[in-house]
């Protein structure tokens, strides 16, 4: 009896621990509509190329960044909204590659979000109003996962389609470094 009580307590502790770590990763927010207030924390001023990542974190970033469902949705929207048209499947083409460790406008999810919403010089259009915010966050979460920066346990492996990139969850992590040379901005 003592043993089972101990086991029960142990179980509760373990379950709570699992819960805390798994909570965000596995949560399914079907009705994805966070407070739609615009890119609050991201201001234009610090979005010059090569900025380190001093952007104060947006509370919504946490919700999207490591969440399997959001990343999967982002993967879908990435396809649907033809991000591949310029960035291909992440390898880069007309637009810069998204799978490496170079991030001209910062590699945090808030910065990626801002890049999508506001657009960037040399061809990246602004998707403000075109894509609802929740979906932009999801795309940003997926784009961030492309360089191996998402939680491995939340990242998808392959897509159902032609193999274009290695399984994302098996990628080596490429921590965002930023690009120290602003002159590099633009198509290569």
């Amino acid at each position: 009896m003592v043993a089972s009580a101990w086991g029960g307590r142990m179980f509760v502790v373990l379950a709570t621990a699992c819960c805390l770590t798994a909570c965000n990763r596995e949560n399914r927010a079907l009705d994805a509509s966070p407070a739609e207030t615009g890119p609050r924390a991201v201001t234009v001023s610090d979005l010059y190329p090569g900025a380190p990542a001093p952007t104060p974190s947006d509370p919504r970033a946490q919700e999207y960044e490591g969440n399997a469902q959001h990343i999967a949705n982002g993967q879908r929207y990435y396809k649907w909204f033809n991000c591949s048209g310029c960035h291909f499947n992440g390898g880069g083409g007309i637009g810069p590659p998204l799978m490496d460790d170079k991030w001209r406008y910062g590699g945090s999810i808030e910065q990626i979000y801002a890049s999508i919403v506001q657009g960037r010089p040399n061809g990246m259009p602004a998707f403000k109003d075109k894509i609802p915010e929740a979906q932009v966050w999801e795309i940003a979460a997926y784009v961030r996962s492309l360089s191996g920066n998402a939680d491995k346990l939340a990242a998808p492996s392959r897509q159902d389609g032609i193999r274009a990139i290695p399984p994302i969850n098996n990628m080596d992590r490429a921590p965002p470094t930023g690009d120290p040379t602003p002159s590099m901005v633009g198509p290569r």
């Binding site: 990763r25 596995e26 399997a68 469902q69 346990l153 998808p156 392959r158 159902d160």
Partner: peptide, 13 residues
């Protein structure tokens, strides 16, 4: 599959 596959059943479920 593919409903249970990597693309349509994200996460660990």
């Amino acid at each position: 599959t593919p409903l249970s596959g990597p693309e349509y059943s994200p996460g660990k479920r």
